[in-house]
């Protein structure tokens, strides 16, 4: 009996030793030199592997940055300026601070405002629905409500509101990686500057139809009346094909356009309560969105 045990131990140890020696030489022979800074840079990245930088994962991004001469084209939206400065220190290069961004959903077409005219019964995917037809409502531009943006978000930063059927961004979780922007077939989601206290003003509509058509399909659509363009003191608002757009870089958050908009298509979010009461109709949808947003924060 003891002889069996002894033989087993000896033979197994011998096999182990031989294998170890072979492995050692093979490892030596096939050793690939890797810049140690890649590991250092990777350490500093958030390891979210979200692809928000445009590379396939954090390591690929780190490799690209180590090779690059200047870092101006590289930015990790998840790590933000903090991570980028730390990486620049490691690589002995410099970076400029960028404004942090956040995703906003530019559609307020809840069933209350935008009537459903048919019912979609296919696979629950916006991509499939949009390739089939214009959607359940009369508006061919707005949110389809099937949640492709929610499916792609790695950070739990977006969810579907059950009542409105629209996606809601959780500002604190959003890293502006842009996955939802790419996933949305109707290009409703936009990355906008994250202002102080997460305040933002934007046109919550992407409908390019003429006023009457847009209004018929959805009561909170932008009808292209250009009132906001005229009232804006900073020339931040442009009108393109019956749709207003507020340039986040020019907008100074004065909120004049919000009260001017006849349909309430322009939203103000995370602002303190106004002192002067405005018209009921204009205020309604705004309040709604405001409350939602505060619930999340």
């Amino acid at each position: 009996m003891s002889a069996t045990i002894l033989f087993t131990i000896i033979s197994l140890s011998a096999i182990g030793a031989v294998a170890a020696i072979i492995l050692y030489f093979v490892a030596q022979k096939f050793k690939v030199y890797e810049d140690p800074r890649i590991d250092q840079v990777e350490e500093l990245l958030p390891a979210a592997n979200c692809g928000g930088c445009g590379f396939a994962g954090c390591r690929a991004f780190a490799e690209a940055m180590v090779k690059a001469d200047v870092l101006s084209d590289y930015y990790c939206p998840v790590g933000g300026n903090e991570a980028m400065t730390a990486i620049a220190d490691v690589l002995g290069k410099s970076v400029e601070a960028k404004d942090p961004l956040v995703a906003v959903v530019r559609c307020s077409g809840s069933p209350a405002h935008r009537e459903r005219v048919n019912s979609y019964d296919g696979a629950a995917s916006c991509a499939i629905s949009s390739s089939l037809y214009s959607g359940e409502t009369g508006c061919q531009y707005g949110c389809l409500g099937l949640g492709d943006c929610v499916d792609v978000c790695d950070f739990d930063a977006i969810y579907m509101d059950e009542e409105t059927g629209l996606p809601i961004v959780v500002d604190d979780n959003c890293t502006a990686c842009g996955a939802c922007v790419k996933a949305c077939p109707n290009d409703i989601i936009e990355l906008r500057k994250k202002n102080k206290k997460d305040r933002k003003i934007f046109v919550s509509c992407v409908n390019h139809d003429k006023g009457g058509v847009a209004k018929k399909a959805c009561s909170v659509a932008c009808i292209g009346c250009s009132k906001c363009v005229k009232v804006c003191p900073f020339d931040a608002i442009t009108m393109d094909n019956f749709l207003a757009y507020i340039d986040p870089n020019k907008c100074k958050l004065c909120r004049k356009c919000v009260t001017e908009c006849p349909t309430g298509a322009i939203l103000e979010i995370n602002f303190p309560e106004r002192k002067v009461k405005t018209e009921e109709t204009a205020k309604k949808p705004v309040e709604k969105a405001e409350n939602k947003e505060q619930d999340n924060n």
Binding site: G122, A123, S125, A127, I128, S131
Partner: peptide, 12 residues
Amino acid sequence: LPLLDYIRLGKS
């Protein structure tokens, strides 16, 4: 299962 819905999407 909506097999063809997804296959068509993949095909496009």
